[in-house]
Computed example of a mutant assay.
Amino acid sequence: MFSTKEHTKKKGEVTSGLDAVLYPLMEDFYTIQGEGAHTGRASYFIRLAGCDVQCWWCDVKDSWDETKHPKVKTGDLVQRAVDSGAPFAVITGGEPLLHNLEPLTVRLKDHGLKVHIETSGSSPLSGHLDWITLSPKRFKKPLDEVFPYVDELKVVVLTNKDLQWAEVNAQKCPEHTKLLLQPEWDTPKSIDLIVDYVKDNPEWGISLQTHKFLNVP
């Protein structure tokens, strides 16, 4: 099940079953959103393990193999997020949509947290999501069914081919989608590419990995 609508807990709803659902977890922590449209906001990150995209420039390659990480109960994850005091949780990975996010997102919203996700869009959407960041990859394309729900399109740029790829994906997104280009951290030449492109195409903006500048986890 997938819904972008506000989840409302039904009176008398049994939640113990949802709280017992297990997810392979690489890490979870209270932090500051470092990139994208919500840069600078306090948030609780939930990084699920498992990835079938495996970008060579990925800075969390340890998340790829879910068998290397413990499985954690939804209830425990949600309680830590609630205790942090964060206004929203960001579900990321790896590729979080390899997992059914219905139990986790329902319980987060039951406790009043907004739920954001960052995904490559290569697997079907699931869960109750308030903000969807699509970061599409050329070597494993997003599913067409994802595009109508994209709030933020964030494309990592290394070469001119990535700028072309960004436009291909932007054409499939809703009019309200925030369009962002992000330089690959270890490819300094991508900065000039992006700056020149945004000056010529002002409907796009720039996303930076500010958490790396600030040494924030």
Score class of each variant (00 low, 15 high):
His69Thr: 04
Ala49Trp: 08
Glu118Ile: 02
Glu13Ser: 14
Met26Ser: 06
Asp196Gln: 07
Phe2Met: 00
Pro124Phe: 15
Ile194Leu: 05
Lys161Ala: 14
Gln33Asp: 11
Lys172Ser: 06
Pro136Arg: 07
Trp204Val: 11
Arg107Phe: 03
Arg138Thr: 02
Leu163Thr: 06
Lys172Cys: 09
Trp131Asn: 04
Ser84Pro: 13
His211Lys: 02
Gln209Met: 07
Gly93Glu: 00
Leu22Phe: 04
Asp83Ile: 09
Lys178Glu: 08
Ser63Trp: 02
Leu153Asp: 02
Ser207Gln: 10
Ile194Arg: 07
Arg47Gly: 01
Asp130Ser: 14
Val155Tyr: 03
Gly85Met: 06
Lys137His: 03
Val150Met: 01
His99Lys: 13
Thr4Tyr: 12
Glu66Cys: 00
Gly17Met: 00
Gln182Val: 13
Tyr197Ile: 10
Asn100Ala: 04
Pro202Ser: 08
Ala89Tyr: 01
Ile191Phe: 04
Asn169Leu: 05
Trp204Arg: 12
Gly40Pro: 13
Trp165Leu: 01
Arg138Gly: 00
Asn215Asp: 15
Glu95Ser: 03
Trp204Glu: 03
Lys137Leu: 05
Pro188Lys: 00
Glu66Asn: 04
Glu6Arg: 12
Met26Val: 15
Trp57Met: 01
Leu108Glu: 06
Trp64Pro: 09
Asp110His: 14
Gln164Asp: 12
Trp64Asn: 08
Arg80Lys: 12
Leu113Asn: 12
His211Asp: 00
Asp28Gln: 15
His116Cys: 11
Gln182Pro: 03
Pro24Leu: 00
Leu98Ile: 15
Phe2His: 02
Gly40Leu: 04
Ser3His: 10
Thr8Val: 14
Gly17Phe: 10
Ser135Glu: 11
Thr210Lys: 10
Lys161Met: 00
Val115Trp: 04
Tyr44Met: 11
Thr31Arg: 02
Lys109Met: 13
Pro70Val: 04
Ile46His: 10
Leu180Thr: 12
Asn160His: 07
Leu77Arg: 03
Trp185Leu: 13
Glu35Thr: 08
Ala37Arg: 11
Val72Ala: 06
Leu108Thr: 07
Thr92Arg: 03
Cys51Met: 11
Pro174Ser: 12
Leu143Ile: 14
Ala81Leu: 09
Lys61Ser: 07
Leu18Met: 08
Lys189Thr: 15
Ser3Pro: 08
Pro70Lys: 04
Pro174Tyr: 05
Leu129Thr: 05
Trp56Phe: 09
His38Trp: 08
Phe139His: 15
Leu179Arg: 02
Val21Thr: 12
Gly93Ile: 04
Thr187Ala: 11
Ser63Pro: 14
Ser120Asp: 00
Val53Gly: 10
Thr39Val: 14
Gly127Pro: 13
Trp131Val: 06
Thr133Ser: 13
Lys161Leu: 07
Pro183Met: 01
Glu6Ser: 11
Ser63Met: 03
Arg138Asp: 10
Ile194His: 07
Trp57Val: 13
Ser84Trp: 11
Arg80Gln: 02
Glu118Leu: 01
Pro87Ser: 14
Tyr30Thr: 05
Val146Gly: 04
Asn169Ser: 03
Pro183Arg: 10
His128Arg: 13
Ile46Leu: 08
Asp200Phe: 00
Ala166Met: 03
Val14Ser: 05
Glu35Ala: 04
Leu129Glu: 05
Gly93Leu: 02
Ala81Lys: 09
Glu27Gln: 14
Gly36Val: 10
Thr105Arg: 07
Phe88Trp: 14
Pro142Lys: 12
Trp204Pro: 10
